[in-house]
Structures are given as structure tokens and as C-alpha cells.
Amino acid sequence: MSARVRISLGLAVATGAAAALFIVDDAYLMRIATLGAIFAILALGLNLTAGHLGLFDFGYILYFGIGGYTTALLTLRAGWSWEAALVASVLMSVAVGLLVGVVVLRLRGPYFVIATFSFLTVAYYVAINWKEVTNGPLGLIGLPAPAFNLPAIGRVEALDPAGALAIALTGLLIAVAVVWRVVESGAGRAWHAIRDNEDLAASVGIDATAYAFLALAVSAGLGGLGGSIYAGYVGIVTPEIFAFGHMVNVLLMVVIGGTGTFLGPIVGAFLVETVPELLRVAESFRLPIFGLLLIAAILFAPQGVVSLRPWRALRAGRPRVPPVPPVEEGPA
């Protein structure tokens, strides 16, 4: 199956699943799907740098938190509407992303990983200690829930599980459109060239720094979008929005789904949100089993679950041929 066929198929399945959710109308399922959609936006954003550009942004949740705090401060302290605060949150995250980029984009490999992570950690402690603005560990409470009247559809409210899911899925659609637009453009090809061989990319005239800034800006903007929707949905923003646990979850979504693929982060987001819920039957063994599943996933699907081709094993009468190893590149 070609990439386009698979993506169309994926979108058809997703539309079907979303329609089924609205018809079944179960608050618990819709809550899981809402969080899945919000985190899918983040996974798409992280995948731009970690998957397409090849730089492991281990502080990506910084933009999620910046988006959340910007939305909380603007709606609570300045009386803005959530929609206006959302736009401002995206712009704020992009601005912070560009500033962070000035420091981190000079670094590569493990240095990049730790430097981005350091920014996240500093933000976490600033959020705890800058009590005048962030209200410290207690956080900002009681954000107004997003609600609007739409022509032909009626009133959409985040307090209603179906309304929240609709808002999150709209956000995800916007993120999918943005990612599709940039990855399938010259910028996407430039990122792949930089990821595969930065020196070679530079030698054919690709400005690695400029394209890296672009990737960081778009991915930061998506983080801000996710953070703003999340803040409107849960109605509270605390320093825990910068928590290491969120970072690990989003990273898992990208890698378990498939780094550098289009559908991988989305599939990964819904998997990572759903599997721990399914494991609730295992009670206190839930998290240890989840950890073992992660190890199994990386051992048996190192390229992510979207790279698995189960239908190949199902084809009858054909011997399974192992994939041809890629030819080693060497000096000619």
C-alpha cells in the first residue's frame, strides 16, 4: 500500500471511530478520546523536530506549559475569551521556541537533549516559585470553559463531554493540516536531508539553521495549541503541566507510533492514552505491565507500530521473504 492510500484509509478509520464515539455517547470513552486528541497534537509537534529534523527535543512539553499558562493568565487576569487566548498562546509559544532555539540549535546529539530538557526544568521551578504570577504550586484555578454558538451546529461547550471532544478533534485537524502542509513542502524535504546527513545537506546549499528554526517554531506553536486546549478542557493550570511524566508520554507516543512518519504520532497518542486504561483491570500491576509493554514494543517494532505490516503475514501461499538490508554507503 502506498503512503497516500494508507493515510486515506487511516483518515477513514479515524472518522468512523469519531462518529462511533459521538453515537455511543459514553462520557468515559469520550474523555479518553479527548485527551488522546490533545496529546496527538503534541505528538505531531514533537515529531517535527524529533522525527523529521532529527533533533531529540527532550524539553518539548515547555511549549505545552507556556500555552497553558498564557491561556490561564489571559482568561483569568485580563478577561480575554478562550479563542483569543488560544491564538495568543500559539504566538507566545512560537516566540519562546525561537528564543530557546538561539541557545539550543548550536548544539547536537546528547547536548541538544539535555539543553532542551534544562529549559523545561527551569520553567517548572519558575512556575512553582514565581508566586505573584503563577500562584505557585497551587496553580491557576477556575478557567472559564470554552463555549461558543456555531451556526447550524448549535452551542458547543467544553463542559459537555461531546463538546470537549469536538473542540479537541478540531484542534487535531488543524494540527494535521499544518503538519501535512509543512512536511510535504520543500521545508519537509530539507528537514529530511538535514536529518540524514547535515554536512551533505549544507554542501548542496540547504541552510540547516534556518530550517531548524522553522521546525522548532512550528512544533512550539503546536505545543502551545495543545496546551491552550488542555487548559480550557481541564480548567486548571499548575506547574505539573511542565511535568517530566508528560514529556515521557509524548515521547512514547512518537516513538511507539513511528518517528518521522505521518500517522505514527497520532496512532501512538491514542495507544498510549488507551492502553493504561485497558490495564486498569490489572490494578496495582498496571504500571509495571505498561513498562514491560513499552520494552516489548521497542524490541519487536523498533520502527514504530505503523511500520508493522500484519497483512503481509496473512497472505497465503507466499513464503515470507526477509527484507533486503539497506546497502552500506561508503566512499566510492
Binding site: L251, L252, L287, L294, I295
Partner: peptide, 8 residues
């Protein structure tokens, strides 16, 4: 991912 899984 493998070492994060192990740590969990």
C-alpha cells in the same frame, strides 16, 4: 524508550 520502560 527501553530504559524508560525499565525505569517504570
Amino acid at each position: 524508550i527501553a530504559t524508560i520502560g525499565l525505569s517504570i
